Amino acid sequence: MSRAVESGVIFLARVALAVLFLWGAAMKGLGYASFVGYLQAQGVPFVTFAAPLVIAIELLGGIFLVVGFRIRAVGLILAIYTVATAILGHDFWNVTDAALQRDMVVHFWKNIAIAGGFLLLTVTGAGGISIDGARAPRSGLSL
């Protein structure tokens, strides 16, 4: 696969991951009171600090994914964040209703899979279609 094709695929992967986080940040911001109530019901500590932090992580993470800025660090941060949200937000082991538990299991493992995608970005970097790619030093050799 050529570098241009690889960069295009990495760009599409970044955008696909970003959509989830940008949408999430927007919905949490628009329904802020409900979001805070959800965090409180989940037993998240320091909700007055956690709620805006979550929105900031999702918003900035989504923007950085789209533009390809500091993707190795962003990938690692969002992988950790996504695993944490799986554990705190999709705790299927505490759900007694069978239908709801199945739904929570799916969402839990979906988050783990998304974290895997972020770990891949941590290793591959942003690709050529990115701020990181534009800032990378170029050698005079063309292979």
Rank of each mutant, 00 (worst) to 15 (best):
A99Q: 15
P52T: 08
A136H: 12
I112Y: 09
V36Q: 13
P137Y: 09
V106R: 11
N111S: 08
V95A: 02
F64C: 14
L12C: 14
S2D: 15
S7V: 06
D97R: 06
V83R: 04
L100F: 04
G37Y: 04
I10H: 05
V54P: 02
V36L: 09
A99Y: 09
V74D: 03
G127V: 11
S130D: 07
V66P: 03
G68I: 05
L12H: 07
L17C: 05
A56W: 08
Q42C: 02
R14C: 12
F46R: 13
A136G: 10
L59S: 00
N94W: 03
L141V: 14
A51H: 14
V123M: 07
A86Y: 13
H107A: 08
W109G: 07
V15K: 08
L60K: 01
I112S: 06
F69T: 07
H90L: 04
R14G: 08
A79Y: 01
A56T: 12
L22S: 11
I87V: 15
P137Q: 10
G24S: 15
L119R: 01
F69S: 02
Q42P: 06
I87D: 02
L12Q: 07
L22K: 10
F64A: 15
V54M: 10
P137M: 10
Y38A: 10
T85N: 05
S142C: 11
R102F: 12
W109Y: 15
G68H: 07
L60Y: 02
S139V: 08
T48R: 07
S130A: 11
G89L: 10
V15T: 03
D97L: 02
F49S: 14
M104V: 00
W109Q: 05
G8E: 00
A50Y: 15
L20S: 14
D132K: 02
L121M: 08
A50R: 04
F108T: 01
G24I: 10
Y32C: 00
L143Y: 12
D91E: 08
T122Y: 09
R3S: 12
A41I: 02
L30K: 03
L121C: 02
L143C: 07
N94L: 09
K110E: 00
L100D: 12
L22C: 05
A136F: 06
Y38K: 12
V83N: 03
S142H: 13
F69D: 05
G75T: 03
A56R: 08
A41T: 06
A73C: 00
M27P: 00
